[in-house]
Amino acid sequence: MELANAGVNGSAVLQARGIDKHFGPVHALKNVDFSVHAQEIVALIGDNGAGKSTLINALTGVFPYDHGEIVFAGRPVRFASPHEARSAGIETVYQDLAIAPHLDSVANIFLGREYRQTGLLGRLGFLDKDRMYAETSAQLKQLGVRVPNLRRRLVTLSGGQRQGVAVARAVMWASKVVIMDEPTAALGVAQTALVLNLMRQVRDNGIPIVFISHNMPHVFEVADRIVVLRLGEVVAELDPRQATIDDAVSAMTGSLRPRSMSNDRPAEVRHGR
């Protein structure tokens, strides 16, 4: 598998081996191997129903898987809930933007991790709003995410700004891996550029990203490695510097053209079983 190493520096941070998952009669994941290495953006692509979200949900403990094993930071793990995965340093940006639109940016970024005041007031649950504001402000500045007035409720912000907050929240808290499920789906051109830049920056800071997307130009612009799922199986691993969008689409749809299979084109295609 010489190609699996394309764009990979260092060992796997998160590695899934032989993951199998059934939903009743539906075989949603079939013996899936998937790994995330330090300093890489690995794209996970596939048609609707290919098993992208199922794989991510199995990895992060949203639901259990039937067979297989997951090794995280060198140790076998089995997260019982997304909360456990988060505690271990894996943050997920969900497709449907898991934000509370009536809260402001600071409240959303600190949701579930609020700082409390010291002493008796803190024990009574009083929030340290100033400290959370200052920390959010500093972190967003460092990340290059600009949100107008952190105290404005998200409902008053544009879609791109809200996405910025959701991404910033994940990046701020992720210590090991960030998973992004269609983070650019609802964004305009400029906002997309912002999010893609942010992803590169996070990667360069040493935190790998799993990037789930339908948008091939975005994937090819930012990914270091592309894993293609089809009908619950990993059907290809591509190097975006050498493969083409056509190769990716062919692998996704299963209509492999001879061109991408032939000669020394490094787009390795593994057939499932």
Partner: peptide, 24 residues
């Protein structure tokens, strides 16, 4: 308006799924 209890009350009303995913 000042405590975590109140903050969670708003968050759940605003988006219960988001609150759940945030570990509340």
């Amino acid at each position: 308006h000042k405590t975590r209890f109140g903050r969670y009350t708003y968050a759940i009303g605003s988006n219960a799924d988001a609150a759940r995913r945030a570990g509340i």
